[in-house]
Amino acid sequence: MNVLTTLKALSDATRLRLVGVLSRGEFTVQELTTILGMGQSRISRHLKILLEAGILSVKRQGTWGYYRLAGGNSLLGEIWPSL
């Protein structure tokens, strides 16, 4: 992914909060809605943007999706301590 895509994905406060939560482990959409106190559609929209930017990955198990930080985004690894 390119730098602009990553930075655009991280330019939203909700997405930064999601990345912060997901930096601590894997979570389902249901768990994230509880943690952040937001609706499922809003969380899912932000997760999609982060997935497309290569910031997150998802592991599917049946009907559940477990979201986590993707290991391959070197830019995120470099700038995350500053965020």
Rank of each mutant, 00 (worst) to 15 (best):
A53D: 03
G54N: 07
L4I: 14
Q30M: 04
I43K: 02
M38V: 08
E31S: 08
L10Y: 03
T28N: 09
G65S: 07
V29E: 10
T33Q: 10
L75R: 05
G39I: 11
M1K: 05
E31P: 01
T5A: 14
G71M: 06
G20T: 00
M1R: 07
Q40L: 12
L51Q: 06
I43S: 01
Y66C: 00
V21W: 04
Q40N: 15
T63Q: 14
L36M: 14
D12K: 09
G25E: 03
R15D: 10
T6Y: 09
H46T: 13
L47S: 04
Y67L: 02
M38C: 09
R17E: 15
T6V: 13
L75E: 05
T34C: 12
N73T: 08
S57G: 09
R45I: 10
R60W: 06
V29P: 01
T28P: 14
M1L: 10
L18N: 11
L22I: 01
G62I: 07
A53W: 02
G39W: 09
W64M: 09
G20Q: 05
G71Q: 03
T34E: 15
L22A: 01
G37C: 06
Q61I: 14
L4R: 12
L22N: 04
R68A: 14
L7N: 02
Y67R: 03
V21A: 11
T63S: 12
F27V: 09
G65R: 04
H46S: 15
Y67Q: 01
L36E: 12
L32C: 11
G25W: 05
I35A: 13
R45E: 15
G62W: 08
M1T: 07
Q61F: 06
S44L: 14
Q61M: 13
S11G: 07
L36T: 02
R42G: 04
S23N: 09
G54M: 08
S44Q: 13
E78M: 15
Q61W: 06
Q30V: 11
A70R: 00
L7G: 01
I79M: 02
S11T: 02
L16G: 04
Q40I: 13
